[in-house]
Design a protein around this nucleic acid. Structure first.
Lengths: 335, 335
DNA sequence: CTGAAAGCGCTTACAG
DNA sequence: CTGAAAGCGCTTACAG
């Protein structure tokens, strides 16, 4: 025993033990009519005792339904995604579904191989968290194959699909307006150029500035959503212009990088340089940090996305569903 | 088209298109002998053009090998685990394996249902990140069924299995000795009582104190690895004893909670109260935080665990493999 | 070099 | 109320 050989108990084993055919075991265990109560109980008891568990592979092959969903996550240096994933996994598990997690490149580069592997494994639905416009051909192909999918967080202009997220534009505008006050020299450190989320946040910040009759500094508007990128952009910015009044960042991680540089140069936050983040990651509220930011309901986004996807998997073919969740501006100590 | 019906192209479709039997398609695509080069190329071309991809379900059922691995993660409020997961997913994907991710309760409670679902799906190996001693019966059952598994991070005293982690005892001892200096009143805020990792870290801290002829304060030794727990324990501690000299925390998240309370009470860190963390999570090095902690190679732990597990899946039956990775003590500004 | 057949573990009409 | 048969999509001995 325990020689590595599969010790799986099959339906047939149970059938033999009880003295019926496998079909009867199937009927009994799946609660279909046509089996006497007494026999059903006996089969259940034997199955339990033998530790029989139907093979999901066999059931999936036979039924053409696997109860499996695929989740595509970009590189997890960004703590935004794990919490999204947690919501997805929790929501899926509550519905008896399993989740294959695949990783795509930073910022969502190179979805194709991951999607292919997921489809090969009969995922019945896919959830994308970091789509970019160049993914459209792949998505169109997916749609043609009849594989349901949904977007979380990012979406693609002009390519409709179920989506769950927040109003990034409104949130960024509100945050920026709130902290703008008299600050004149304002930099906006956005995320990747083609990310709908980053674009929305940057546009919101610019709109707030415009409403106050100001324009942002042209420095560092586009970059990765990483701390390193925040550091590099902040250094370049401060080298060129000294301590500016406010840096509006595309997420909390960039803001961390900016604060690193403020610390390194001895600029007081927010007195010399005010900084805002976005997402309200767990560390943002920490005592020594107290980052001013926007809380995004990441777990809830994941859960809602599963709910939408499940409807599709069950055959719903209506218009793309848009779920816009509430956000909360958190004004703390950095702006 | 696109009515939700499965648009899967099967081997048989390809066979029909080429005018051969499905078996020939299988031989051709899998590079087996017995197919002329010319025919093989033609079959490959047609398969590609039709977008044929073998069903992993069918292949898995037929071969009894699914190339799938299951990863069990506790509640992801703790950023420790996503980075571990990233290493696992990356390592698996490099080997052509897919990863089912399942979530278990906080601190690893209630593994059983998740394990069961993973085994039902024919995962060929399981990776546990937060085992507890009471999981032994479940693990023994797994072993009896011939399902290979490995531990990352936590392990179980007296239950040998492949394990990847660091020497938590040595690391905690080194860190504590380094920052101890003249500090007399020292609290050790550990993690869950039965976690091998938390136990090792706490023991290491106590050993360092003992070596200096000191004993830790009895307050808050056991608790969850959460910020809330850090907050609660710090409040109770400071209520009872005022600002102690040093709080050695079981991880960075607890330390964050302690620093929240220092901030709230106006205690300067490290001058009034020194604080150490453990793990070196990304936020730990942030300018305003500069937490003194121990860097744990989380991604690498995940990758190595996949390598060990893969050997088992390929039939290796030798002694349990123990992989102890190097850690790095990071002395920054909080102690 | 190619084809027909069995079988992985299930489910579900269809007969009895 | 129960059993025999077909089939989901593959792979692999086994004949030809």
């Amino acid at each position: 025993m325990s020689n590595g050989a599969s010790k799986r108990v099959t339906q047939r084993d149970v059938a033999r033990a009880v003295g019926v055919t496998p079909a009867t075991v199937s009927y009994a265990l799946n609660g279909l009519p046509g089996v006497s109560d007494e026999l059903r109980e006996r089969i259940k008891a034997v199955a339990d005792e033998m530790g029989f568990r139907p093979s999901r592979l066999a059931v999936g092959l036979r039924l053409g339904r696997t109860n499996t969903l695929g989740l595509l996550l970009p590189d997890v240096a960004n703590p935004f995604y794990p919490e999204l994933a947690s919501g997805v996994i929790e929501g899926a598990s509550a519905e008896g579904m399993q989740v294959f997690v695949a990783q795509v490149g930073l910022d969502g580069r190179d979805h194709a191989p991951a999607v292919s592997a997921l489809v090969d494994s009969h995922c019945e639905g896919l959830l994308f968290t970091a789509v970019l416009p160049h993914d459209i051909p792949m998505l169109a192909d997916l749609r043609a194959r009849g594989v349901p999918f949904g977007f979380i967080n990012r979406r693609i202009e002009g390519f409709d699909a179920d989506w769950v997220g927040i109003d990034d534009f409104a949130a960024a505008k509100e945050l920026t307006s709130l902290v703008l006050e008299g600050r004149q020299r304002v930099a906006v450190f956005g995320g990747p150029e083609r990310s709908s989320v980053s674009a929305g946040r940057a546009a919101g910040a610019r709109a707030a500035l415009a409403a106050a009759g100001r324009t942002p500094l042209p420095d560092g508007m586009v970059g990765d959503l990483t701390r390193e990128s925040g550091v590099e952009r902040a250094r370049a910015l401060f080298d060129a212009r000294g301590p500016v009044d406010l840096v509006v960042c595309g997420n909390d991680v960039i803001a961390l990088g900016v604060m690193d540089v403020c610390h390194e140069r001895g600029f007081a936050v927010p007195d010399d340089v005010a900084v805002t983040g976005f997402d309200d990651m767990s560390f943002a509220s920490a005592g020594p940090l107290r980052l001013t930011t926007v809380e995004v309901p990441r777990q809830e986004m994941g859960r809602q996305a599963v709910a939408s996807l499940r409807r599709r998997m069950l055959g719903f073919t209506g218009e793309p569903q848009v779920v816009e969740l509430p956000y909360t501006v958190r004004r703390r100590n950095t702006a």
